[in-house]
C-alpha cells in the first residue's frame, strides 16, 4: 500500500462513526463591521453576524481576479458600488465609493502602531509627497513595477528601474528602494496586501530592497480581515504586510527591522 493510501485508510478507520459539526459564523463578517470595530470601547453599532450561506461574489472556490473587488460603503452591504478590479490600472477617486474618514483614520493609526511611516494626501499632492518621501530617504535608484501610475512619479528625482528583464536578487539588494501600489488594505489591522498585480510586481521586488513605499488608495481600505479575504484571489501569490520587518525573538519584545524592508512608508491617497 502506498503511504497515501495508508494514511487515508488510517484516517477513515479513525473517523468511523464520528459525527460532523456545524460551523457557527457569528463573528463579524465582511462589509458589516464598523470601521472602528476593533478599537477598545468604541461603539460596535452595525456589527452583526452574517448568514452562513452568504453568497460569495462568484461561486464557492476561486474567483477570477477583479470579480470580488466591490467596494462597499459603511453599513450598506456589497450592493452595487463601483468596482475597481485589482488587475486594472487605478482610476481617480470620485468614481468609487469613498470609505468614511473614520476607516482611513483607523488604518492610518494602526499602520503607525507598527512604526511604519504614514501620510495621508489628496490625489493632487501625491506626486509631490512621493518625491519628498524618496528624497527624504535619499533614494536614488528605485524599482518601479510595471503598472505603477506614472503621474505619481512626475516630481521625483530618481532613476526608475523597471523589472524588465527581471532584476536579479543581487541587483535588488543594491537598489535604494521600491514603490508599489497594493491590492487591498485593512483598517483594523493596519495591513496592506499585495497580489503581484499592476503596480506591485513580483514578490521579490518588495522584499529585498530595504525601503518600501506603498501607495494606497482610500477606496482600497476595507474594515477588517474578512473583507480582505473576500476580495482577494488565492490563485495569485499574496503578501500581507503589517509594518516593517520585525522580530519578537529577543525576550519577546518587538524590534523592527530584520530581513524584509526595514522601513515601510505608506501613502494614503484620498
Amino acid at each position: 500500500m502506498s503511504s497515501r493510501d495508508l494514511i487515508l485508510t488510517r484516517i477513515r478507520r479513525a473517523l468511523a462513526g464520528v459525527p460532523d459539526v456545524e460551523i457557527p459564523r457569528a463573528y463579524r463578517g465582511p462589509s458589516t463591521a464598523s470601521t472602528a470595530g476593533g478599537s477598545p470601547g468604541s461603539a460596535t453599532g452595525g456589527v452583526s453576524g452574517r448568514p452562513d450561506d452568504r453568497a460569495r461574489p462568484s461561486g464557492e472556490t476561486t474567483v477570477p481576479p477583479g470579480a470580488r473587488a466591490e467596494v462597499s460603503g459603511e453599513g450598506t452591504g456589497a450592493s452595487g458600488e463601483t468596482t475597481r478590479p485589482s488587475d486594472e490600472p487605478t482610476e481617480p477617486p470620485g468614481e468609487t465609493a469613498e470609505p468614511p474618514g473614520a476607516r482611513i483614520r483607523l488604518f492610518e493609526e494602526r499602520v503607525g502602531d507598527y512604526r511604519a511611516v504614514v501620510h495621508v494626501v489628496n490625489e493632487a499632492d501625491t506626486a509631490g509627497r512621493v518625491a519628498r518621501s524618496l528624497a527624504g530617504r535619499g533614494a536614488r535608484r528605485v524599482v518601479v513595477p510595471a503598472g505603477f501610475p506614472s503621474e505619481w512619479l512626475t516630481d521625483a528625482d530618481v532613476e526608475a528601474l523597471a523589472d524588465d528583464p527581471p532584476l536579479s536578487a543581487v541587483d535588488l539588494d543594491g537598489v535604494d528602494g521600491v514603490v508599489t501600489t497594493c491590492a487591498v488594505a485593512i483598517a483594523e489591522t493596519g495591513t496592506i496586501v499585495l497580489d503581484t498585480g499592476p503596480g506591485q510586481g513580483r514578490r521579490a521586488l518588495t522584499l529585498v530592497p530595504d525601503y518600501h513605499l506603498c501607495v494606497v488608495r482610500a477606496a482600497q481600505i476595507v474594515a477588517g480581515v474578512p473583507d480582505a479575504v473576500a476580495r482577494l484571489d488565492p490563485r495569485r501569490p499574496l503578501t500581507w504586510i503589517s509594518g516593517p520587518s520585525a522580530t519578537s525573538d529577543i525576550e519577546l519584545n518587538r524590534v523592527e527591522g530584520v530581513h524584509g524592508p526595514r522601513t515601510l512608508e505608506v501613502l494614503i491617497v484620498t
Binding site: 476593533g38 494602526r110 502602531d113 507598527y114 485593512i186 483594523e188 489591522t189 493596519g190 495591513t191 503581484t196 513580483r202 514578490r203 480581515v225 488565492p234 490563485r235 495569485r236 501569490p237 499574496l238 503578501t239 500581507w240 504586510i241 503589517s242 509594518g243 516593517p244 520587518s245 520585525a246 519578537s248 518587538r254 524584509g260
Partner: peptide, 18 residues
C-alpha cells in the same frame, strides 16, 4: 501568538508560482 493585531508578513501561494 505574538500578541499583535497582525504579524508583519503573511505569504500565501498556490502551487508553483513565479
Amino acid at each position: 501568538s505574538t500578541g499583535e493585531r497582525m504579524n508583519p508578513y503573511t505569504s500565501m501561494w498556490t502551487g508553483a508560482v513565479e
